[in-house]
Amino acid sequence: MFAELLQYLLSGLTIGAIYALAGLGFSIIYNASHVINFAQGEFIMIGGMASATLTASGVPLPLAIMIGCGGAMLVGVLVAKFAVERARNASTVTLIIITIGASIFLRGIAELVWGKDFKRLDAFSGETPIQILGASMQPQSLWVVGTAGVLIVAIGLFFARTLTGKAILATSHNRLAAQLVGIDVKRVVLASFALSAALGAIGGAVVAPITFSYTEMGIMLGLKGFTAAVLGGLGHGPGAVAGGLIVGIAEALGAGYISSAYKDAVAFVIILAVLLFMPNGLFGKRGTERV
């Protein structure tokens, strides 16, 4: 009974960590540019596919992950520069449609490059399950949770401690003022896309041994990441992380206790509930601005 619950919680935590990274990616880009980037899932896919196919052709794993990450960052910058920046004054809906278009385009390219098959990536440190209080856990889950944890803390420090991080936050708070203190706001947007892409790609690489990689893996992961970001309050970093974990755990519990057929439905029930009953999310913007 307890072992079963623990089992669900552990698998929920693992997948939730990936949703958290994706949600953080949504929030970072939303903050810098007020764009909801539905190509976020494709960054995860690029990370997963690149590391799986590169290691299969003999590239050492760390290098493969770095290449995947760099490739995703480049793609992120290109999406920002050629799809989003060109439509600077377009409405939010238009921008969303543009990013959806970009995501379809990226999936198409990925299919041309990598084909439609599932790609396998070996677990980083073996497949011998770890037994915890009657539940068992793949060692790869530790990699997923650990990597996500390190990245989330690093991102938090980056925004709280570095001038560049503060400048990105400043741009999200007041674009005009950011320009007037000399922040190049276009570069901030590009940087935010690169940063989100890196988060997604690393997440994709560490989760690949659990989920397998395929060109459409980003669709669901991206949508769940979006759910995480909205649940936490769009643009709120720690909220997105909490949202990701909540969605992941709710999904695992739903799959375990109700039916695994409804696994994906859980996230969408959550997002509908959030949009209907608390559109600002759990940690939505508190107004501290005084006019």
Binding site: L163, K166, A178, V181, G182, R290
Partner: peptide, 19 residues
């Protein structure tokens, strides 16, 4: 004024020296 409202006074000042 156009301050960075949620950021601290000191962060606002530091951002002034951004360039």
């Amino acid at each position: 004024r156009q301050l960075f409202g949620p950021q601290s006074v000191e962060d606002n000042l530091r951002l002034g020296a951004y360039r």
